[in-house]
Amino acid sequence: MDMDLMLRVYPFFLQAAGTTILLSVLTALLGLACGTLGAAARLSRFAFVRFLGAAYVSVFRGTPALIQLFILYFGGPQIGIQLDAFEAGVIGLGINAGAYMTETIRGAIISIDKGQKEAARTLGLSRWQAMYRIILPQAARLMVRPLGVNLNMLIKATALVAAISVIELTYTAQRYIGSTYKPFEMFLLAGVLYMIIIYATGRAVAWLDRKVQIT
């Protein structure tokens, strides 16, 4: 193993890891926003809005994220959408992650016993009051763990933006593999950083999950 080389290039990997983290955070936030909207659409009382929500989930989960990214980044200019690679990465991956999160959020909401809504409505709460005061606080506790799984997948999916030349961890590894012909060393550097990010996120999710449980 070429330790000298690894010591020489690791600062670039650290910097790239910063980009991966930033990308993950922004994507997760956008994904959460899309997922919330998507879940709201899927639970709407209007059939057409429900259909839109279902179509969003089906199309974005039914096609490769890489292709979605390419359509946005390379095809976007043809329909008047000009984005730099980083922006396209965040938006493309965020909308994709949102489709998965839609199902997570919706699943948690519909798993709350129907009696909870009935009891709230019986007291005179409106649909919206029952949702945010009674249903959502309970559903939120159920969402933490599966959203953690979504987050784990999302972090790994940020590697896809290497294909549109965003200089994050995977792109950096790929470039150094090409220039040094040391695939194992470069994989090790990038891999360890990914695993640290993923491990830390997993611990944070587990902590949050414990924290929100009802005593």
Partner: peptide, 13 residues
């Protein structure tokens, strides 16, 4: 714990 794309690079190269 690592992305598939990175694994593909490792295996191929």
């Amino acid at each position: 714990g690592t992305p598939l794309l990175l694994q593909l690079f490792l295996i191929y190269f």
